[in-house]
């Protein structure tokens, strides 16, 4: 839902980042207001996951330029855990397995960290169990997954559901979902998309990274951005995704070549 007067939650300006000596993000700009759903698409390797991890504060990436303001704060100066407590959520493209750490305990510690960030009281184990059981229904996940180690031995789809369960518990202000739809069967896609729709509201915002129109059939984006070699090459409405579905990314090369030739005119 686009409301021009809605508060800006996330404002990315000319963000540049590298990993080791390799520049990956080459000037990303993006403004997200409360209530909006944005989709980011683009070829493999165009920098989508890098953008999401830089926002979340992954230590492997060095920011070399640009700014990110998050609800008025300088996001990049915050430790990753403080970003999370302030309501920034990253649903990972590849959630890691953490053997030996119980999913239930992990979820409880994470939920309480976020609650502390919102100035709310910690939940004790019983109150948390009630909450988690309720939120499990959003993703229709079997409570048996709570007893297992974090993501350990989970199937690809189960990991993604576990990400959405975390999102449901952490009540994010801005959720960045990196290919949460990939690896899901048709039912799971509906469930996950339903969960995201359920959690999206007028006061929060969602950034969906995806390759597929089928997700955007269920979650209607307000904006669609196309990333290429570390920048956002084009922004449009939901029809841009349909166009991509039809035409593919070949036009990207032409546009990039044009950029190379006449950067000043386009820039």
């Amino acid at each position: 839902m686009i409301r021009p007067d809605a508060p800006v939650l996330l404002e990315i300006r000319d963000l540049q980042a590298r990993v080791e000596d390799q520049p990956i993000l080459k000037g990303v700009s993006l403004t997200i207001r409360a209530g909006e759903i944005h989709a980011v698409m683009g070829r493999n390797g165009s920098g989508k996951s890098t953008l999401s991890k830089v926002l979340a504060g992954h230590p492997a990436y060095t920011v070399t330029g640009g700014t990110v303001r998050y609800v008025g704060d300088d996001l990049l100066s915050l430790e990753p855990e403080l970003r999370a407590r302030a309501g920034l959520f990253l649903g990972f493209q590849y959630p890691v397995e953490i053997p030996g750490v119980s999913n239930l305990e992990f979820l409880r510690v994470a939920t309480n960290a976020r609650r502390a960030g919102k100035g709310e009281e910690e939940l004790d184990t019983f109150a948390f169990e009630d909450l988690v059981r309720e939120r499990l229904q959003v993703v229709q996940m079997d409570p048996a997954f709570l007893e297992r180690s974090v993501n350990e031995g989970f199937s690809g789809g189960e990991k993604k559901r576990n990400e959405i369960l975390q999102m449901a518990l952490l009540d994010p202000l801005v959720a960045v979902l990196d290919e949460t739809d990939s690896g899901l069967d048709i039912d799971a896609l509906r469930i996950v998309a339903g969960g995201v729709n359920h959690l999206a509201g007028p006061d929060n915002a969602t950034l969906l990274i995806t390759h597929y129109q089928r997700l955007l059939d269920v979650i209607t984006p307000d904006y669609v951005h196309v990333m290429a070699v570390g920048r956002i090459l084009r922004t449009g409405g939901k029809e841009l995704a349909l166009e991509l579905e039809e035409r593919g990314y070949d036009w990207v090369d032409a546009e990039l070549a044009a950029l190379e030739r006449t950067p000043a005119e386009v820039g």
Binding site: A56, G57, H58, P59, A60, E79, P80, E81, R83, A84, R85, L90, F92, P95, V96, I98, F106, V109, A110, A113, R114, G117, V150, Q166, L170
Partner: peptide, 13 residues
């Protein structure tokens, strides 16, 4: 590092 970051990204110091 990736395991640490995963936990940190969930608000855990």
């Amino acid at each position: 590092q990736d395991e640490l970051f995963y936990l940190q990204s969930r608000g855990i110091a």
